[in-house]
Design a protein around this nucleic acid. Structure first.
Lengths: 246, 246
DNA sequence: CGTTTAGTTGACCGTGCTCAAGGGGCGTGG
DNA sequence: CCACGCCCCTTGAGCACGGTCAACTAAACG
């Protein structure tokens, strides 16, 4: 990891996401922007940013790249409980708890901002709507987490994968990372399997089924959704749980 | 629902739980206690307190009884994403979002306190550690939610049910609702099935397996765990995600 | 070039689901 | 008081969805 210079566009996803939850004033936006730019790092793919059991002592905001939030069982089984996408936070407010319940890995090279607890607390104390927006991101994480439980617990393989793709697509769209009906999709099938609670073999066959149905094109880390409405139907996707949509 | 008189012990679970997350001062405890007692309601079993899509406009604290947090698919499939136990909150801070992503039903007759948004915000503004304790309850809900995703996604039926029982047992122990190795366990097998992502038939057989292994006794809405360590082993239960333990 | 990583395919198997039927407890109404 | 219905639990039989194991290809990389 090393400190790097930042071009103006990099903080765009974060600001966009927060503004979808609470209208931020210009001064609040500027203060937030400034704090974020104070310490920008990057990491390669496959690095662990925090492990289960560690004390979370700083806040990280993802500016570019994908990460996975996951837990391991003793015998190596892994469940990815969420992806962390550009504009999202790794651990807002988690410093309030003594240790992390899960681990976070980079899935791709990642650019992120790191904020210590104190400046973060000063920041949220300075503007009410900024604090509310940040709290909302935490609440939305909760909503997404609940939807994932539903996805894994009550949808079959095809529905499950279709739903996952719809959700990620919408989350990327919010931060401007969708062009037309395509987006970068830089995860392996193994990651997708661990995110959807399927075996890697069955995930592979499920993807092929979605391709054969003409719903998606997924190759070379690029996802194209040919018919988003059809994919949503296939995944029983109901966006009520993503409050920034609509 | 109707207003009722409160005996002194009813707020115990809530206070106990918050104190496990943050040491509360006497004055903070008293202020909280007073706010809670202002409006105490009860509901029968099988009532819906809030439905998916509704605006959450007040905070509810459970003083007695069990509830389920769940989501429905169009075709009626249901996933219970968490139980809400005595001392826990139905929807702390969720008023920050425009609508609820899930529904909450009572599983038993329930006694709860209802707090409007304004007095709640005054309350948390009055004491820093109280606010942090309440935020922590929200973060712990997140931890539990993630663990449920792991449970449903990566554990087999026996492990899954064993884990669920361990978790609920520990959560009840925290608020003083465990006596010896037994606790009230007032849910139907259908509820347990929907919580663990299993069919009701298979859940029934899994419970019988746990009984046959001598791990648990479960009858007449009463759970006895004969060997908690063995049950934890069977469920690959790692309590790191429950910060108030240990 | 050899090695590693990701994706794909086939064959077989088993966990967990579906459908169906029946039992026990309990409340309600005749 | 009994009959009936309802809810919850239980059991059996058959099956299918998805897991496991294994082998192979293709691309990436040193």
């Amino acid at each position: 990891m090393s400190i790097m210079r930042l071009d103006g566009g990099l903080t765009q996803p974060v600001v966009r996401r927060l503004n979808a939850l609470r209208q931020l004033s210009e001064t609040a936006t500027a203060a937030f922007d400034k704090t974020i730019r104070r310490r920008v790092l990057h990491a390669g793919a496959g690095e662990t940013l925090i492990s289960e059991g560690e004390r979370p002592d700083r806040i990280r905001v993802v500016l570019a790249g994908w990460l996975s939030r996951y837990k391991l069982l003793e015998d190596g089984r892994r469940q990815i409980v969420n992806f962390i996408l550009p504009g999202e936070m790794c651990d807002a407010f988690s410093y309030l708890l003594p240790r992390s319940d899960h681990s976070i890995d980079t899935l791709t090279p990642v650019v992120f901002s790191e904020i210590e607890r104190e400046p973060f607390e000063e920041l949220i104390a300075s503007d009410r709507s900024l604090m509310e927006a940040l709290w909302c991101t935490s609440l939305v994480d909760g909503s997404i987490q609940r939807e994932w439980a539903v996805n894994i617990g009550r949808r079959d393989a095809l529905e499950r994968v279709a739903h996952l793709l719809c959700e990620v697509f919408e989350r990327l769209k919010l931060v401007g990372l969708v062009e037309g009906n395509s987006c970068a999709f830089p995860v392996t099938q193994m990651d997708l399997a661990d995110a959807s609670g399927l075996s890697i073999v069955h995930l592979n066959r499920t993807l092929q089924e979605l391709r054969a149905a003409g719903l998606i094109i997924l190759r070379e880390r690029m996802l194209t959704i040919n018919d988003l409405d059809a994919l949503k139907d296939a995944g029983l996707f109901n966006p009520t749980y993503l409050p920034y949509l609509r």
